[in-house]
């Protein structure tokens, strides 16, 4: 008996939390928005999402197995999540081969080449999306219009999105606020359903997967910044609420910017990061040449994150103030 005792240092118990618990919680939180998307974009949404997830999982498996010769890390669910998030950022009429390229860039370039989950600097799904946006600007910026149980895929009817309407300051053509809230507008397949995304966000808050700091600081910054512009010149600038409900802002603020690996770790740093994303987003939307700036804003702040981590230290217990 004596020699069989297991000796290790304290603590001898673990709280039982795991990466896969956190990842699966995020996946669950995305399901309401996925259902809304399936309703409004139909077949296209289903195809793009399935192909995106399948290719992310496949690429991660192949790269881990044959290039890095590591144990497979699929069990943690992070590849599935990346696939799902990538799909959420794509139009539902995107040709599937482009989706596969996006998945390859997200997993191969943005994640595995840094050493896998935890070592990447930039959000993999967003790197995939931005790569596609630059390489296939046309396909990436023609969004289908919502139509319940749409069975058209590549040939779905496309049209203007609220963001492009806002860009041209034709506010009378903006869809109804309620439609924007429930997701009955054009846009990338997972970003339109603000209500469902907020629901998912609440779930993540309750499950303590995320805290309010990042989403709230982003949304508040956008609201205040666009509010000031609106007051300054209502002819040119859209109202702040439309800004909050359109484009990838909700998806970005709740799901993309809160990615653990690429966001700051200390709460104070998270607020700085969120404010940064908010400001850059509005600048691109209002003053830049793209109608949408959330992805770029998050990626830029991802790049600043190591710096924020280095300077934003938690409050130390019993810190002695230096005079």
């Amino acid at each position: 008996m004596e020699n069989k005792l297991y000796v290790s240092m304290s603590p001898h118990i673990h709280g039982g939390d795991s990466i896969s618990r956190k990842m699966w919680d995020v996946i669950i939180a995305l399901i309401p928005a996925l259902l809304v998307s399936l309703y409004f974009f139909g077949l296209g949404s289903l195809l793009v999402t399935s192909v995106s997830i399948a290719s992310c999982v496949l690429f991660e498996y192949l790269i881990a197995r044959f290039l890095l010769k590591q144990e497979s890390t699929l069990r943690d669910g992070s590849a599935i999540l990346t696939g799902l998030l990538l799909a959420f950022n794509l139009p539902s009429n995107l040709p599937l081969w482009i989706v596969v390229i996006g998945a390859l860039v997200a997993i191969g370039m943005a994640k595995m080449s840094f050493g896998g989950l935890g070592n990447n600097i930039f959000n993999p799904a967003l790197v995939g999306r931005v790569f596609l946006l630059i390489s296939f600007p046309q396909q990436m910026t023609s969004w289908p219009l919502p139509k319940p149980f749409n069975l058209h895929y590549l040939d779905a009817a496309t049209g203007a999105t609220p963001l492009s309407v806002m860009k041209s300051s034709r506010f009378d053509r903006l869809p109804d606020m309620l439609d924007m809230f429930i997701g009955n507008t054009g846009g990338s397949l997972g970003e339109v359903a603000a209500a469902a995304l907020i629901l998912g966000g609440l779930f993540l808050l309750i499950r303590k997967v995320i805290t309010w700091h990042i989403p709230v600081s982003i949304l508040l910054t956008v609201y205040i910044f666009t509010g000031i512009l609106r007051v300054a010149n209502p002819e040119v600038y859209a109202d702040p609420l439309s800004h909050l409900l359109t484009g990838g802002l909700m998806l970005g603020a709740i799901f993309m910017a809160t990615d653990y690996v690429t966001s700051p770790m200390v709460k104070k740093g998270q607020v700085i990061y969120g404010i940064g994303i908010g400001i850059i987003t509005v600048c691109i939307r209002v003053f830049g040449s793209y109608p949408e700036g959330v992805s770029f804003a998050i990626l830029m702040m991802n790049g600043v994150t190591p710096l924020i981590n280095a300077y934003c230290k938690p409050k130390r217990f019993g810190e002695v103030k230096k005079k």
Partner: peptide, 12 residues
């Protein structure tokens, strides 16, 4: 003790 993975910088 469970298998050790990379730090995912969750800040927990």
């Amino acid at each position: 003790r469970n298998e050790v993975y990379n730090c995912i910088r969750c800040g927990d």
